[in-house]
């Protein structure tokens, strides 16, 4: 199930790259769920499902043909995460649970074959651990568009091992981590004279 919107009543929504979502998610997720480390996902399996850094991943597991627009079925696992017995895996949590037409962007794979071969290429995924100084908090290497909810992807059993944080008990991620998009040219400060 999707998270209810919980911010202070009567405030504007959707500003600061949906920053409210982080607080809601932190509030709603039991500590045990954010600190779990039993998952098996790695960056390798993460990128196998994608066509370029930031593309919507394919659905890696079987979904019945009749499985269609009933979003509760997707969000029952991917809304809050948790262990799935049939797949023996922890379900990754979506960072954009407010969108309910899941198959709009995520499709399964019914064949391995291609219609014709492709010349598609893309860039390397962003580098990890780019702390500016030894031990300083690394910046956020990706855009926040559709990925505003840090806690969804970076904590808990379903988090990709390489990007899982070890201080999930803190709920104000962007207090220390700021976006510095690794795949875009870096803008240095120059003084207007």
């Amino acid at each position: 199930m999707a998270l209810p919107a919980k911010g202070a009543p009567d405030i504007a929504q959707g500003f600061d790259s949906g920053g409210e979502k982080i607080f809601n998610r932190f509030n709603e997720t039991p500590l045990a769920a954010t600190t779990g480390t039993d998952g098996t996902r790695t960056l390798n399996t993460y990128y196998e499902l994608r066509q370029y850094p930031g593309s919507p991943p394919r659905v890696p597991h079987d979904v019945p043909d009749s499985f269609s627009g009933d979003t509760l079925k997707c969000l029952s696992c991917h809304g809050r995460g948790g262990y799935d017995v049939t797949l023996d895996a922890y379900a990754p949590v979506t960072p954009h649970h407010e969108y309910e037409n899941c198959f709009q962007c995520h499709v399964p794979r019914r064949t391995e074959k291609l219609f014709v071969e492709t010349d598609w290429q893309s860039i390397n995924p962003p580098l990890l651990g780019r702390s500016e100084m030894g031990g300083s908090p690394p910046p956020i290497p990706h855009t926040l568009q559709l990925r505003e909810d840090c806690i969804a992807c970076h904590t808990g059993n379903a988090a990709v091992a390489e990007i899982r944080v070890e201080h999930a008990s803190r709920g104000n991620c962007r207090q220390c981590h700021v976006p510095m998009i690794a795949t875009e040219p870096r803008k240095e400060f120059t003084r207007n004279k």
Binding site: N44, Y47, W120
Partner: peptide, 29 residues
Amino acid sequence: AIVAAGSIFPGISFAGWQQQEGASGQISW
């Protein structure tokens, strides 16, 4: 401290796409 994701598992490349050779790793939009 700087580890390229692609070099984390030497010998294994990501199956999702072919990586562009000689690219800066940066994108203009």
